[in-house]
Nucleic acid binder design. Sequence first.
RNA 1: GGCUCGUUGGUCAAGCGGUUAAGACACCGGCCUCUCACGCCGGUAACACCAGUUCGAUUCUGGUACGAGUCACCA
Length: 474
Amino acid sequence: MSNVVTRFAPSPTGFMHIGNLRTALYSYLVSKSQGGKFILRIEDTDQVRLVEGATDVILDTLKMTGIEYDGEPYVQSERLSIYKEYAEKLIAGGNAYYCFCTQQRLDSLRDENGIGGYDGHCRNLSKDEIEKNLAEGVPYVIRQKMPDEGKTSYTDVVYGEVEIDNSELRDQILIKADGFPTYNFCHVVDDYLMGVTHVVRGNEYLTSTPKYCLLYDAFGWERPTYVHLPLLMGKDENGNVSKLSKRHGAVSFQDLVNDGYLPEAIVNYIALLGWCPKDSNQEFFTMDELKSAFSIDGLSKSPAVFDYEKLKWFNAEYIKKMPDDKYEEKALPILDEFCENYINTKKLASLLHTRISYFGEIRKSIDFVTSRLEMDSSFYTNKKNKTTPENCKEVLVDCLPILEAVENWDNDTLFAVLKEYSASKEKKAGAVMWAVRIAVGRQIITPGGATELMEVFGKAESIARIKQAVEELE
RNA sequence: GGCUCGUUGGUCAAGCGGUUAAGACACCGGCCUCUCACGCCGGUAACACCAGUUCGAUUCUGGUACGAGUCACCA
């Protein structure tokens, strides 16, 4: 057991963004690849944005993806007194101060772009003034006192040395007027108290990390190792990339699962967005394989665009690898919901097994089964098999009695019967199959051949469809 | 706008001074075939730009351009 401790610290927003999930995964892997500990901390200090049941979404997602946290999750709203205590220590040490500025005054400090700042107005209030305001119950926040000059730097494991001028740093708020701490403050206190050794988080914190370093310094605590992750991007229809968001499609884990993507496939794909194994081209990974293959130096610095096409490919591969019973467990309920009783859904499911990339696609590919589609006689024309509406009609008329005589209505029998017919008439088997397939399927491209389709439809419906086709060719 | 980070084919991405610059997705051909899909075989396609260091730069340094992030009583 190593002493590596990492954490995942989501705020309960009601859904798990795929970018957050990737952060959770990497944080988990940084720890577990070293045999360390991984803890979960719910950061619910924003009372305005609280969402009912949001924590369950986080818990469910972690469970489904196999990201297991150690111990019980911490909940920040239950730790308020701790933050207060540490904030007061900071004030006593001269590294933080009470600020009584009104929202109105703060707003007046913003520039034309809406970018705010703080002018340090309350930095040097006299002790009397502070006591007086406090006694009168004037609302206040607690701010961190930043150095006026100099630079603060730290070494990030993936980005290297990052240095910021202290003049860039604002006196950020540590405790809000409602008494709740800000992320900027409580995550530092918690990470220290919980023994977090590696802070793994998104790149958006890269430039604010010096502020947190200063907090560690003020408390006299050893700074953790920082592992910032490249951002996940999405691409819009114009080809512009930006932080992955809803306008790029389904971006929550739950959305993807509802569309019929498998959690293992999602995890496998996002593991590779920003990380690559050393000395190997392996791209299929189970969680256990990720744990042993992962290393921090395989992390990349540049942002990665989330590619739905590749996700689809991964998912299709995972579906193809599913054993029949597992596959049917997912596919059959969908088919049974939309198909009439006489449809052989088991057969239909097996035809679809190599043809879908996510389960939601099933619904889209069975219109020709759930109804008799509008069709055009031009469908019968096929150059390679030299078929025309005329000769197809001939074939169909010939085959009707032959098919009606078939007792064992399965693919092999049907294929043999039609093959025999084509031989007797000296026709290409392909030509016969084409005619029957179009008549039964009523669309040019079908998931499966003529005889497979007939097996799906069953004898009565197949023959009814062929009869209808013949009539339409009159 | 200030600051910070990034830049290898359309996308993911290997490479860590000398390579015909891997591999995967997508795309395009071919084979297989009862259409499609699966499978198999093959193909198109990249080091942002300019200097410098060096015998030699995709790899190191600087600048430019472009992109992204950040500058909240959100995390």
